[in-house]
Amino acid sequence: MQLTPADHAFITGGASGIGLGIADALLKRGVKVTIADINDEALAQVLASRGNGLRGVLLDVRDREQWREAKEKAEEVFGPVTVLVNNAGIAPDGLELADSVPESFERIFAINFFGVYNGIVTFGSAIRSLGRGHILNVASMAGLSGDRPTAGAYSSAKYGVVALSETLRAEMKPHGVEVSVMCPGLVMTNLPANTARVIGKEARGAMPGGLDAGVAGEMAVRGIERGQFYILTSFGRDDPIRKRFEEQLAAFAAGPDPDLA
């Protein structure tokens, strides 16, 4: 997609981390940006440090009524949204599936999966009617390989985001709207603190190590400009993904049991 100053991007989880990195990369290109976040303090700090091309709205991505209100507020000032970035999410809970707590499992899905769905159902038809635009859903490397113990809820939700994005791409392509799914590896963000805020626990600091969030944001926007479907930030981690598809292809190659054919 060719980004222009006429475009308006709406980014969830936009007051920090990858979301803010994407916002900054878009602002550099002259795109008007609305960042939505559940953290009012972080929103205020970001808005105080950026120019007039940025606005902010409070949003809990689990709440569809808040989504409706956020869309109205955003488009009152900057006009129709042409770029939707569904980025908001929380971290894994560190529990094995056999020991999982249903409330925690459901919360991870409510934010990491249904938060993306809510964005699509709020903005998707309007973007489709414009005949141009881009929808970027942020998943994770965990959405491509689910072999990490204690991340069952998280991986399942992120796998769902990848599948949702694949279907959305097929649906939007005839209307001139592009779709991407971003699958970042380790990125330096305050995801642990944001997760703690949502679940009501003591906040921890930023994730150690990993890619700078600003760099990840630039990678995302370049992916949008190039029309990439899969946007990655980490490379050389394809062994578990290759193994997964090799197992699937081997199952197809084996064919049915002769006794059951």
Rank of each mutant, 00 (worst) to 15 (best):
L260H: 09
L58A: 15
W67C: 02
E75C: 05
P80Q: 14
R222G: 05
I199V: 15
G13M: 02
V215H: 09
E96R: 11
L164G: 02
R132M: 04
T195I: 12
E72W: 07
H134I: 09
I111W: 03
R237S: 05
M182A: 15
E65H: 09
F10V: 02
A193D: 00
G143K: 11
F252N: 01
G131H: 09
T122L: 14
R197N: 11
V162R: 01
A220L: 10
M172Q: 06
G146Q: 08
D99T: 15
G56D: 07
A126I: 03
D212A: 14
A48L: 14
N39Q: 10
V215C: 01
T122W: 15
E202Q: 13
R226G: 01
S165H: 07
M182D: 10
G89C: 07
K201E: 15
R237T: 09
L43V: 07
V83D: 02
L136K: 04
A196Q: 06
I120H: 14
D93P: 04
A36W: 03
G143F: 03
A216T: 04
R50Y: 08
L58I: 13
I231M: 01
N39H: 08
L249N: 06
R204G: 10
E96Q: 08
T233H: 06
M172R: 04
M207Q: 15
F235Q: 04
V121R: 15
V101Y: 04
T233W: 09
N112M: 05
G152M: 00
K158A: 03
Q2S: 06
E225N: 12
I22L: 05
